[in-house]
Simulated scan of single mutants.
Amino acid sequence: MTPTPIIRQVDRVITSQPSQDGDGVNIRRIHDFGGGLDPFLMLDELGSDRPDDYIGGFPPHPHRGIQTLTYVIHGGLTHEDHLGHSSTIRAGDAQWMHTGRGIIHSEMPLTDQQGLHAFQLWLNLAARDKLSPATYRDVRAAEMPTLIGRDAALIALGGHWQDATGDSMEGPLEALAGQGAVAHARLAAGGELTLTSPTTTLLVYVFKGSLEIAGTVVPQGRLASLGSGEQLALASREGAEALLLAGEPHGEPIAHYGPFVMNARAELEQALNDYREGTFIG
């Protein structure tokens, strides 16, 4: 007989907290720079129909030692950086930035009839990649494949995803840190979706409605961190949307200061010194 797959259970639930960043942009944030979400570091949700909450955007600022993934639900964001990239993403699009040794960029918001709703995820780079060359890529909604479940759909931004029937897909972003995978799950009322989940780290952030994960109800604005197992079982009575994050921990020391994430305090001091002296992006 084929053994029954082990369903991953919710280990803990983290509530997003109101915060501000950039030029007074109101956000809801979940972060853990102690390694508790490794290889993920932070998830920001920007969501408002009031332009004053976000119109100031994120003027030019530096990063080193991370990747960022920005995903738009509605509205848009325009990105510019010192490498000469200039592009705009809108509903359903994403942009991925590998900061490596250093990048200086800005992100300015665009609005639609519903205002702005977007996410930015920080992924930690392994020590060997902290000082690698910076790169950037846009991903359009049309490039993202979709898995269909029972009154449910899974849109893959990056990494490998497979459902319990064996149907699988690869998101267009193949170089996410920590063998990362990111997807957007949509469940109608009564919808169900069961996925295989071989990675060590598996996180589910609910941003609309509420999800039942192996019998635990996770409401809007919460991140569920799941224990070990072989399958992820999602269901929703009222309908829900969520971001799914999967990856393998680096298991390395984390040193964090503002936009810089390195492995040691001395490396943070070097990043600050490089930025002050104009050698940050050399």
Results as ranks from 00 to 15, higher is better:
residue 1 M to T: 14
residue 1 M to H: 12
residue 3 P to I: 02
residue 3 P to Q: 06
residue 5 P to A: 02
residue 6 I to Y: 05
residue 8 R to P: 00
residue 10 V to C: 00
residue 14 I to F: 03
residue 16 S to M: 11
residue 19 S to R: 14
residue 22 G to E: 12
residue 22 G to R: 06
residue 22 G to Q: 10
residue 26 N to P: 02
residue 28 R to M: 13
residue 32 D to T: 09
residue 32 D to W: 12
residue 33 F to W: 10
residue 33 F to D: 11
residue 34 G to W: 08
residue 34 G to E: 13
residue 39 P to N: 07
residue 45 E to F: 00
residue 47 G to S: 15
residue 47 G to N: 14
residue 50 R to E: 14
residue 53 D to R: 04
residue 53 D to G: 00
residue 56 G to H: 03
residue 57 G to P: 01
residue 59 P to V: 06
residue 60 P to F: 08
residue 61 H to Q: 12
residue 63 H to V: 00
residue 64 R to S: 12
residue 65 G to W: 03
residue 66 I to F: 09
residue 69 L to F: 11
residue 73 I to L: 15
residue 73 I to N: 04
residue 77 L to A: 10
residue 81 D to G: 07
residue 84 G to V: 07
residue 85 H to D: 12
residue 90 R to P: 04
residue 93 D to H: 07
residue 95 Q to W: 05
residue 96 W to Y: 09
residue 99 T to V: 02
residue 102 G to N: 09
residue 103 I to M: 10
residue 103 I to Y: 01
residue 107 E to A: 03
residue 107 E to R: 03
residue 114 Q to H: 15
residue 119 F to D: 11
residue 120 Q to A: 07
residue 120 Q to Y: 05
residue 122 W to K: 07
residue 123 L to T: 03
residue 125 L to D: 04
residue 126 A to T: 13
residue 126 A to G: 15
residue 128 R to C: 10
residue 129 D to M: 08
residue 135 T to P: 08
residue 137 R to H: 06
residue 138 D to Q: 15
residue 147 L to I: 12
residue 147 L to S: 03
residue 147 L to V: 09
residue 151 D to S: 15
residue 151 D to Y: 13
residue 153 A to I: 06
residue 155 I to C: 15
residue 156 A to E: 05
residue 157 L to G: 10
residue 160 H to N: 09
residue 162 Q to N: 11
residue 164 A to G: 01
residue 165 T to Y: 01
residue 168 S to M: 03
residue 175 A to W: 06
residue 176 L to C: 04
residue 178 G to E: 08
residue 181 A to M: 05
residue 181 A to W: 01
residue 181 A to E: 00
residue 183 A to Y: 08
residue 183 A to V: 01
residue 185 A to L: 11
residue 186 R to L: 14
residue 188 A to S: 15
residue 190 G to T: 10
residue 192 E to Q: 15
residue 193 L to H: 12
residue 195 L to N: 06
residue 199 T to R: 14
residue 200 T to H: 14
residue 204 V to R: 02
residue 204 V to S: 07
residue 205 Y to Q: 01
residue 207 F to G: 06
residue 209 G to N: 05
residue 210 S to Y: 06
residue 213 I to S: 01
residue 213 I to C: 11
residue 214 A to E: 00
residue 214 A to Y: 02
residue 215 G to L: 02
residue 221 G to H: 05
residue 228 S to K: 12
residue 229 G to T: 02
residue 229 G to R: 02
residue 232 L to Y: 00
residue 235 A to L: 03
residue 236 S to Q: 07
residue 236 S to H: 04
residue 237 R to F: 06
residue 238 E to K: 10
residue 241 E to W: 11
residue 243 L to F: 01
residue 244 L to R: 00
residue 245 L to D: 09
residue 246 A to G: 13
residue 248 E to W: 00
residue 251 G to V: 09
residue 253 P to T: 08
residue 256 H to D: 06
residue 256 H to T: 12
residue 257 Y to R: 10
residue 260 F to Y: 12
residue 265 R to P: 05
residue 265 R to G: 15
residue 265 R to H: 13
residue 266 A to H: 08
residue 267 E to C: 01
residue 269 E to A: 12
residue 270 Q to Y: 02
residue 272 L to D: 03
residue 273 N to D: 14
residue 274 D to M: 06
residue 275 Y to D: 09
residue 276 R to A: 13
residue 279 T to V: 13
residue 280 F to K: 08
residue 282 G to F: 09
